[in-house]
Design a protein around this nucleic acid. Sequence first.
DNA 1: TCTCATTGACTTACGATGTAAGTATGATAT
DNA 2: ATATCATACTTACATCGTAAGTCAATGAGA
Lengths: 227, 227
Amino acid sequence: MATKTRTAKAPRIPLSRERVLRAAVAFADQNGIASLSMRKLGEALGVEAMSLYNHVANKDQLLDGMVDLVFSEIELPAGADDWKMAMRKRAQSARQALGHHPWAIALMSTRTSPGPATLRHHDAVIGSLRAAGFSIGLTAHAFSALDSYIYGFALQEATLPLGDTAEETAAVAQMMVERFPREVFPHLYEFTTEHVLKPGYDYGAEFDFGLDLILDGLERVRDSASP
Amino acid sequence: MATKTRTAKAPRIPLSRERVLRAAVAFADQNGIASLSMRKLGEALGVEAMSLYNHVANKDQLLDGMVDLVFSEIELPAGADDWKMAMRKRAQSARQALGHHPWAIALMSTRTSPGPATLRHHDAVIGSLRAAGFSIGLTAHAFSALDSYIYGFALQEATLPLGDTAEETAAVAQMMVERFPREVFPHLYEFTTEHVLKPGYDYGAEFDFGLDLILDGLERVRDSASP
DNA sequence: TCTCATTGACTTACGATGTAAGTATGATAT
DNA sequence: ATATCATACTTACATCGTAAGTCAATGAGA
């Protein structure tokens, strides 16, 4: 009876804010953000719910930290690339990160205090544009347009019911045809049956089209502003 | 002792799905979506929580209905306008509706079954583009680009802490300068202090810039595709 | 080596939440 | 007057976030 309780257990890696946040992200990825509770997160970490409060002030701060962790996954614009390539890469990286964590978009829209990774990301984006000769005003335009597009696209992607496999697509098609009666929504009907549900269609591919539209437009505006 | 209980009360307007949804939207507008509960919504309607379940299947369906109600506020593209004007008007109307109900963006990203008003909106947008000579494929591009931008902008606007009044702005400025140390985030620092926090700046005005970027780009693509 | 402060995990408890199940009431139809 | 039916109310339960208090392990100073 050397020690009293809980002996012979695993040596117990101590918790940390980092570990808590990573576990929360993994949990939300698997089970959805709606079913993330402090108790279940504790369970996933082999710990009681209240222990988590030693590392995050409350659940809201946990959610803040999760969003920031997702932002930290986004590639910063590389100084080596020209601005267009740098923006394209970081946009695609952002889409990828938000695609891996579809719950992040919902969180972003309710949380108003950005974390350090988010701020670093924004700082790098602004720096990249400024270095490419964008005036402050035009940088604001570009930043707003690009980020709106990126987040909005991620939102639509998260919302779209289109599955990955062929069976999923078929099931979705069935549901859509039922919900979009040809007489009531003729254009939507044609659009989905003739295009979106056709075998080769991949909504993700739409991303680059809109992105290039914005990038080309920005380039044109920049060049016409400072000849 | 003619009747037994609850006599002499107001004649009691009966509940309806419509009335429940409208009350829910009003509640969320005033108190935020996070504090909307079935009990509080019932209270706002002078009714017990469980009575609401006679008109909505569960809370999720209530949220679905709320999103659809917001969509019903968005102006449909008018057939009389040329496509660009029609798209501009509906985009501005959408931004306005989402601005009035900032919680809607968060809901949109978690709800995958669009309601009738949402479908009607999409049908009208697709119809407007098709009528303007956009091919189905280009309509998909346009739809994706425009809606991504619109929702993303609304998301950013909902997230941005910038207040409306001068005092609010000052308070935000104070907070930002503290959180954005010049040495750590030099570009962000310059950007906020030199531009965003300057008296005349209004983030909402950025909307039209990006919108026109996309609309002009779409027009160019359409005209070069079918000469 | 012993002592003791500190850290971080555990226990208990409370009010609030979504909603299943059952009950009562008032309006309408016969 | 009676029966039917829609709709509101009551009760109950599992789960939630988290305040407050307890207890054990750790590391420093003597």
